[in-house]
Computed example of a mutant assay.
Amino acid sequence: NNPLSYTDPSGYIFKKIGKFLKKNFKSIMAIAGAYVAFGLVTKAWTFGAMAKVAASKAVLGGMAAGAVSGAISTGSLEGALTGAVSGAILGMVGGAGLSGIEAVAASGLVGGAMSVMQGGKFGHGFVSAGVGSATGGMFGKGPV
């Protein structure tokens, strides 16, 4: 019951936070950039609003978010183009109105194909996109 037992007089926690931010700065900025790009294109800034986005706007928003995220993550035009293509394709899959195992399989196939195009393994992309599709319904129904 000592209130001083969990204090940090040395400031060690700030060093840990600084190292984390330095190591993950590009990823954090890519996520923020993708969120802002999607919001600017679709005018949807909350999960509720994103769930009501029309399929065509989901494709355009996915393309914009993918392009911005890819450009920030890789620092190259190739990364931006790859991100735009994958964002648009996944926006199409999301806007198709698939549900259940169909949505998981379609997203997984697209994710696997995009992973191979980027020099990765099909299985890693399939699992990543499939899990994202399976857990995406937790925030509401809709193309997003």
Rank of each mutant, 00 (worst) to 15 (best):
G142S: 06
K57A: 09
A64M: 10
F47E: 07
A49E: 15
S73L: 15
Y35Q: 02
A65S: 11
G39I: 11
V41C: 05
F20P: 00
K57I: 00
K16G: 01
K19M: 13
G95M: 10
G108H: 13
W45L: 12
S5V: 15
S10L: 13
A105C: 07
A54T: 12
G18N: 15
G33E: 06
N24I: 00
Q118G: 00
A88G: 07
A32R: 05
M92W: 08
A55E: 11
M138E: 00
Y6M: 13
T135Q: 01
A64D: 09
I17E: 02
K121S: 13
S115T: 00
K52W: 03
L4N: 09
F25Q: 07
A55H: 09
Y35C: 01
T46N: 03
F47N: 10
G136M: 08
S76R: 07
G111C: 05
G11P: 12
L81M: 12
S10C: 05
G136W: 12
S115V: 00
L40R: 04
A134K: 03
L109V: 14
I28W: 05
A103V: 00
P3I: 14
G142A: 06
M114F: 13
K19Y: 04
G83T: 05
M117S: 09
A88N: 09
I28N: 04
G111F: 10
S133D: 08
N24F: 05
A113V: 15
G62P: 15
V116E: 08
V93H: 14
A84L: 15
G132W: 08
I13P: 00
G111R: 11
I89L: 14
V144I: 02
K43N: 06
S76F: 06
N2L: 12
S76Q: 02
F126T: 04
V53I: 10
A129H: 06
L21A: 12
V93M: 14
S99A: 06
K22N: 03
K22L: 05
G11A: 01
I28P: 02
L4F: 12
S133E: 10
P3W: 14
S107R: 04
K22H: 02
K57H: 09
I101W: 08
A30S: 12
V53G: 10
G123L: 11
A34N: 13
L109D: 02
M63A: 09
I28A: 07
F25E: 03
I13Y: 09
V53C: 07
K22W: 01
G111H: 08
G18I: 01
G39Y: 15
A96H: 10
S27W: 14
I101T: 01
L77F: 12
G132D: 06
G108N: 13
M117G: 02
G62A: 11
G48T: 07
G95C: 07
S128I: 08
V59C: 08
G136H: 11
V85K: 02
L4P: 00
V144L: 06
G75L: 07
M29I: 14
K22C: 01
K57Q: 09
G132P: 09
V144E: 04
L109W: 03
T135M: 15
V131L: 14
G130Q: 13
G97C: 14
G87K: 14
P3N: 10
I13R: 01
L40C: 05
G75Q: 12
L21W: 07
L98K: 04
F122K: 03
S73M: 15
K141G: 01
M29K: 01
A71H: 02
V59R: 07
D8W: 07
A51F: 06
